[in-house]
Simulated scan of single mutants.
Amino acid sequence: MGLSEEELDRLADVVRLQPTKNAELQEAWGMESGSEVHSYLEGHLTDYYFRDDDSLIRATSEAADLVDVEPGVESDAEAEPGGVPDTIRVPELQAQVFEVVAGPEERSQSVVSVLNDLRETFGVDPDVDDVRRALRSLERKNVVEVVYRTVPTFRLAVERDAVTVEVAE
Rank of each mutant, 00 (worst) to 15 (best):
A95D: 07
A63T: 05
D47P: 01
I88C: 11
E78A: 07
G72H: 04
L45H: 02
R107N: 12
A102T: 03
E99P: 00
S113Q: 15
A77F: 13
R89M: 08
T60W: 09
S33D: 12
W29M: 10
G82P: 14
G30M: 05
V69M: 09
D86F: 02
V90N: 12
Y40F: 14
Y40M: 13
V112Q: 13
I88M: 11
E42P: 00
E70K: 13
E36G: 07
E78D: 05
G30K: 04
Q96E: 15
D68H: 04
F98S: 13
D47K: 11
H44Y: 05
A64K: 11
Q109T: 07
L41F: 04
T46E: 08
M31C: 05
A95W: 09
S55G: 08
A63L: 12
A64W: 03
S113G: 14
S61Q: 10
G43Q: 14
D54W: 03
Y49M: 05
V97S: 02
Q96F: 09
V73R: 12
R89I: 12
V84P: 01
P85C: 08
E99V: 04
V97C: 01
S35F: 04
L93A: 05
A59W: 12
E36D: 14
E32Q: 08
E106Q: 15
G72A: 04
G30Y: 06
V67H: 01
E105D: 15
G103Y: 00
S113R: 11
L66S: 01
G72I: 07
H44R: 15
L45T: 05
P104L: 09
